[in-house]
Nucleic acid binder design. Structure first.
Lengths: 146, 146
DNA sequence: AGCATTATGTAGTCCGGGCTACATTTCACG
DNA sequence: CGTGAAATGTAGCCCGGACTACATAATGCT
């Protein structure tokens, strides 16, 4: 049928597929990012990150948290010994820092364009995982010129 | 041990859990939104929405698309008869419209703050599902004053 | 009209990320 | 120091969303 003749004014299909694919990838790694972010925060504030606390902050059961922590360990982001709390690997710390910085920027940016603080915080939780470096840079430029 | 004594200078845990929960919800409905958006677009441009085309636009196999379409039908967003293409219900059309409007706004907004078009399009694919009404309104305000 | 190609559908698998239920370990406190 | 509550861990279930492989329907071409 050759539906996309010469026009291609927008949405070339292959690109669209790629966009969706990368959104899926972002979704997949979002959870891990949330975990390391919370673990890092708990380590910084309390000195230890216990599964129950992590679970409570995420609003899931401890069983879910423990299982996910297992995946983090498998993926080289965290390590822990039974009944001993969770710690981040080097890679985990790096990730946590990047994620935290991104989170702060997104929240600050949303606030700067007039989104109420509570909402900014909530939306950032979802948005931050889909903000590319280029977009993050745009956010920072905006904040700088504000 | 009562770890959260009186301080609570920020991040009240229950709120955080709620934020994560709603981010999870958004993630869960993101797929359905992508589907109805694409179906609506195909219906508008081609007159029909065939599973294979939907699959190609999403970058997944047709089997995946068909299964997901089954969920859309179960959820009252679409309907179809074997070998006959996919159509949207009233609810599906409404959702598609809302999603489309949101998508356009997000893309326009990102472009307005200096994100390159390609990137804006890509990031919007993920971001749009996490933008609350309040934030969307802020985007629109920004665009209006531009 | 008949056949090859393409689209559609079905079955079965895998993994992620939730949950509940139950088992085990720590630890605080009497 | 012993014990009961809280934390931790394990097992098993469910569903979503991806895949491959195979079967069947539709269609286009000669």
């Amino acid at each position: 049928m050759v539906a996309m003749h010469m026009v291609e004014q927008d949405s070339a299909p292959p690109d669209e597929a790629a966009r969706h694919a990368s959104a899926r990838t972002a979704r997949a790694s979002a959870l891990a990012q949330d975990y390391v972010e919370i673990i890092a925060d708990l380590l910084a504030r309390e000195g230890e990150a216990r599964p129950t606390d992590i679970a409570r902050r995420l609003g899931v059961t401890h069983a879910t948290a423990i299982k996910t922590i297992g995946r983090l360990k498998r993926d080289g982001l965290a390590h822990s010994k039974p009944y001993r709390g969770v710690f981040l690997t080097e890679a985990g710390h790096e990730l946590a820092q990047r994620v935290r910085a991104r989170h702060l920027t997104v929240v600050a940016f949303l606030a700067a364009i007039g989104v109420p603080p509570q909402v900014a915080e909530a939306d950032a939780e979802g948005i931050e995982h889909h903000v590319s470096d280029a977009t993050l840079a745009a956010f920072e430029r905006f904040l700088a010129n504000a």
